[in-house]
């Protein structure tokens, strides 16, 4: 499947600006060492795909970036601002980072539209009418505008995930984190979500995706990170990491994932 040549966008200019800088990140759950000296830079507009076996710490890694998880050692900076436990960091994360989850996590008691307008109205203090207009435009963009008045429990998983994308975009983030956004979906729905993600990637969003969709990695990723046992084993362009891995662990993992794809 991956052998088929994929059209990759050619016009992309590599940015010189660092969006996310991670240095010496260490995290323990009690005695368990989840992240071991993880360091990497993510450039602006760059698309990073993080893959690896379960329990390799990839979810924990990207959850650290918007401080859904705390870490005991190391530093993370967003656009040269070091994140800490202070109010400024919270605002910085809120203004810059959006996140998608495996289980969508829409707010079930609010309609699709209200899910999207909640942040803009309460946090950015945008007038309700304006927020609705903007959210409707975003829902249009992800192709679910006709579901605006439904509740999350009434729509399919793929639709929910696309609403979740619109909800994140409503806060106008510059960085989007994806934590296995398609793992809970069936193949037809995976495609509808991936299409939106590809569209996002092409619009110049900085993205970090934990995903097992190797096709997606090939098509849009600038770099692929392979993690195992809390460490970054390999990092590089998809052609290199996914085709000619340097390490045995990577090639072993890829063999498994390809035999199932």
């Amino acid at each position: 499947m991956i052998d088929s040549p994929v059209q990759k966008r050619q016009d992309k200019q590599p940015s010189k600006r660092v969006a996310i800088q991670i240095e010496g990140l260490n995290k323990w759950f009690d005695q368990f060492h989840v992240l071991k000296d993880v360091s990497m830079d993510v450039m602006e507009n760059e698309i990073i795909v993080v893959c690896g076996p379960s329990g390799s710490g990839k979810s924990t890694f990207i959850r650290c970036i918007n401080r859904l998880e705390t870490y005991q050692e190391g530093e993370i900076s967003i656009f040269d601002h070091r994140l800490g436990n202070d109010k400024n960091s919270a605002v910085l994360i809120r203004e810059n980072i959006g996140m998608l989850f495996q289980s969508f996590n829409l707010f079930p008691h609010l309609t699709v539209l209200k899910n999207c307008t909640l942040g803009p109205i309460w946090l950015r203090k945008i007038p309700e009418k304006q927020a609705i207009e903007k959210s409707m435009a975003l829902l249009e963009r992800v192709g679910v505008a006709d579901l605006a008045s439904k509740y999350p429990g009434q729509i399919s998983g793929g639709q929910q995930q696309r609403v979740a994308i619109a909800r994140s975009l409503a806060m106008a983030p510059r960085i989007m984190l994806f934590d296995e956004p398609t793992s809970a979906l069936d193949p037809e729905m995976i495609k509808e979500v991936l299409d939106v993600m590809i569209d996002l990637a092409e619009s110049g969003m900085t993205m970090m995706c934990v995903t097992h969709e190797m096709q997606f990695a090939h098509q849009v990723a600038d770099r692929v990170v392979f993690m195992s046992d809390g460490e970054i084993v390999e990092i590089g362009p998809p052609e290199q990491v996914l085709k000619n891995p340097e390490w045995d662990r990577t090639s072993q993992f890829l063999k498994h994932i390809l035999s199932h794809a």
Binding site: R63, N66, R67, L68, A90, I93, R94, E95, I97, G98, M99, F101, S103, N105, L106, F107, P108, H109, L118, G119, W122, L123, A164, R167, S168, M171, L177
Partner: peptide, 27 residues
């Protein structure tokens, strides 16, 4: 309330009181 709701609220940028009164308590 599933922990994912807290995650989602935080990732949208809601603080403690917003999260509680807009997301968690209604549910």
């Amino acid at each position: 309330i599933p922990i994912g709701q807290f995650d989602a609220a935080k990732s949208v940028g809601l603080g403690y009181w917003h999260t509680m009164f807009l997301i968690i308590l209604p549910q």
